[in-house]
Amino acid sequence: MNLTLKIWRQKDAQSSGSMQSYAVEGISEDMSFLEMLDTLNEQLNERGEEPVAFDHDCREGICGSCDLMINGQAHGPEVTTTCQLHMRSFSDGQTITIEPWRAGAFPVVKDLIVDRSAFDRIIQSGGYISVNTGSAPEANSVPAPRDKAMRAFNVATCIGCGACVAACPNGSASLFLGAKITHLGELPQGQPERMGRVASMVAQHDAEGFGGCTNIGECTAACPKEIPLDVISQLNKDLRDALRAGY
């Protein structure tokens, strides 16, 4: 298939960018979206134009590196990651607009690459259970009810891609944050720090410049791991408990 790509090009964080149009030909529908971009880059390299920079690593849908806004949808038209999106989801002759994640807290680094280190700082502010290596009790000494463990697992599958932020009209990271709060809050091991954790992580979320949540729900639809909106409710509830406990 032949396609027209409109891609955001930006030299670096300081420069301002613009949309550029490229024609690519000979795209197979078995290609993944990123392989299609590889093809474009190979062609650009041949022509002496600098290839388009984009983040990717595992290309298996699990590392959370890939992050493209495709035709106005985070990760494109399917519920999956950009790397798992295949060209058969598009049609011959189509124009595809590719943009970086847009959020104040995710500044553009180059072309389609953004800086998501704010997520690391949110985790640093409390997204863990404090246990030093070697001090752990025998694993089965604390049973965790199966349903709670299941829920913890389901939300722990968040890959930290940031699609939720990219899709949210408020640029809120509530889904990401809620997923971590729910994961750790559902497990018996996570209880001692529960209040402090939520207060601290929410404070960091706000300090990073993410927006508040208006419960719009675009985030969950864009989430490749289908993290449900429950986690935002849980986040709010935990914060309310923390308020009550004096945090």
Partner: peptide, 11 residues
């Protein structure tokens, strides 16, 4: 934890 994190000042 974030120092002086006040839950009451959050979004």
């Amino acid at each position: 934890l974030v120092r002086g994190a006040r839950a009451s000042r959050s979004t």
